[in-house]
Every structure is written in structure tokens, then in C-alpha cells.
């Protein structure tokens, strides 16, 4: 009985596999980190103009922004990724003429391109929701005090919007880490890609469990750190309204389900629903 248990345990941890392939997971983790950091940053930079366009009074601009957001949030990221990766291959002559083929040749760049466009759509909605959450009265009051437009946005709107947006931004970052696993499907050897590689060699299903634990640890670290940042940024609010820190509220902080979600993210009004 003891021996069976011991055999089971040896089976469970499969140290042989890990000593042979463990470094591959580290390699993969590094690629995942790069993909996520670059995509989220580019997505953020792109999200701002999209958000402005969306809120603009110009009908053409706002319609374009709405279509953009609807498309990228309404279709699976995997489909978008295929479209970018294999689509770029199909229109290679055009891309060569434009002088960007060398970029789209790389799976890494294709992933970043697709992920950035995708996360920009989500981040734009987060920004819009956050900006809309600042009450009109504050802006009017500031204007009545004679503050310039720039100063209103710099000192009144953004600091408040930032606090509202913090939580959905954190959720978006986590969502992005999770969806970056799709990069494996277009040959990128990120954490998921390396995991599949090892599985194809060893057929040991446990490698998926190891990968899961790594993802889990990263996501938990980010969640905790984000919680700390949020707490320190909104100390004044928490002190003033302790009642909002009920269990239900605390849960909703982390309940934005996956990246594909048509969000709690960004529309804080709906969170209290």
C-alpha cells in the first residue's frame, strides 16, 4: 500500500520530466511576459484615441470607434489572431509593398498586433466608463471657477477617473495574461506553447498542471499587488465610506470574467447592479 502511494507520488511530480524540460517553461514564461507587457502598453496607447473618438461629437468618428470596439469585443480573440496571422500571409505582396512584411513575418509580431488591437477595444471602454463616472457637476463647477479645459481634465477629471479605472485595468491585465496563451496556437513558444511542446514529447498530462500553477501564481501576485495599489490610491474614499467595503463589493473587484467579457470593466454603473 505504501509502495503504491510512493509510486503514485513519484508519478505525480515527474521530476525526470521537469529536469529535462523545466528550462523550457522558464523560456516560455519570458516570452509570455514580453507579449503581455508590449500588448497591454500598445493597447493602452491606442485605447486613448479610440476612447476620444468614441466620445466625440463627430458622428463619423464615433461610429468608427463604436464599430472598432464592437468588432474586437464581439468576436473571439483566436479568430482575430488567425485573421492577422494567416491573413497577413495571404496579402504578403501588399505588405511587402508597404514595407512591413518583415514585421508580419514573425509570429511574435502578429500576436502583439492582434492582442494590442483587442485589448485596446476593452481598455477604451474602461476609459470611457471611468471618464463618464466623473459627474458633470464637478466639471461645471470647475469651469465656473475659471479653470482652463486642460486644468479641469488634469486636476479634476483624470485623478477621479483613474481611481475608477484602476480595478478594471487590473482585470484587463489579468485577462490579457490569460489570453496570451492563444499565441501558442500560431507557433509562438510562450508558456503555453512550451507546455504543449513538452506534452507532445512526454504525453504526461501533468505538465498542464504545472503550467496552470505558474499562471495561477502570476495572476494571484498581480491581483494582490493591484489590491495594494488600489487601497493606497483610494485611502481617502475608503475612510469616508467604510460601508462600500462590503463582501459583495470586494467580490466584484475580481469578478470580471476573462478578457472576452463585455465588461463590468469600464462601466462602473453596472457594477452595483
Amino acid at each position: 500500500m505504501l509502495q503504491t502511494l510512493y509510486a503514485e507520488a513519484a508519478d505525480l511530480f515527474n521530476f525526470e520530466m521537469m529536469s529535462r524540460y523545466g528550462w523550457r517553461l522558464i523560456d516560455g514564461l519570458w516570452i509570455t511576459a514580453q507579449v503581455v507587457t508590449i500588448s497591454v502598453t500598445l493597447g493602452f496607447l491606442l485605447a486613448y484615441p479610440v476612447c476620444l473618438a468614441r466620445m466625440s461629437r463627430n458622428r463619423v468618428l464615433s461610429a468608427a470607434a463604436v464599430s472598432y470596439v464592437t468588432f474586437f469585443r464581439g468576436t473571439p480573440l483566436l479568430c482575430q489572431l488567425y485573421l492577422v496571422y494567416y491573413g497577413a500571409g495571404e496579402i504578403r505582396p501588399l505588405l511587402t509593398d508597404l514595407g512591413v512584411w518583415w514585421l508580419f513575418r514573425e509570429a511574435f509580431v502578429c500576436c502583439i498586433f492582434a492582442f494590442s488591437l483587442n485589448t485596446a477595444a476593452y481598455q477604451a471602454e474602461i476609459m470611457r466608463g471611468a471618464l463618464a463616472s466623473v459627474s458633470k457637476g464637478q466639471i461645471e463647477a470647475a469651469a465656473a471657477l475659471g479653470l482652463s479645459k486642460f486644468r479641469i481634465s488634469r486636476h479634476i477629471v483624470w485623478p477621479q477617473a483613474f481611481i475608477v479605472a484602476l480595478r478594471p485595468f487590473g482585470n484587463e491585465l489579468i485577462a490579457m495574461i490569460k489570453s496570451s496563451a492563444l499565441a501558442a496556437i500560431v507557433t509562438l513558444l510562450d508558456l503555453m506553447g512550451q507546455t504543449r511542446f513538452i506534452f507532445a514529447r512526454t504525453f504526461d498530462f501533468l505538465i498542464y498542471v504545472y503550467a496552470a500553477i505558474i499562471y495561477l501564481v502570476i495572476v494571484e501576485i498581480i491581483r494582490r499587488v493591484w489590491g495594494l495599489i488600489e487601497r493606497s490610491c483610494s485611502r481617502h474614499l475608503i475612510a469616508a465610506t467604510p460601508a462600500t467595503h462590503s463582501r459583495g463589493q470586494d467580490e466584484s473587484r475580481i469578478s470580471r470574467a476573462g478578457r472576452h467579457g463585455l465588461s463590468h470593466g469600464g462601466s462602473p454603473q453596472s457594477q452595483g447592479a
Binding site: 500571409g89 504578403r92 513575418r105 507557433t187
Partner: peptide, 18 residues
């Protein structure tokens, strides 16, 4: 060396020059 889930995919990438 690039490894793909199916053989169709490297073929498509060969055709596109990737």
C-alpha cells in the same frame, strides 16, 4: 525550427514566405 499543430499550416506559411 518552427512546429505547427497541422501540416497545412507550415505549408501556408511556406507559400506566404514566412
Amino acid at each position: 525550427i518552427k512546429l505547427y499543430p497541422t501540416q497545412d499550416e507550415p505549408n501556408l506559411d511556406l507559400a506566404s514566405g514566412r
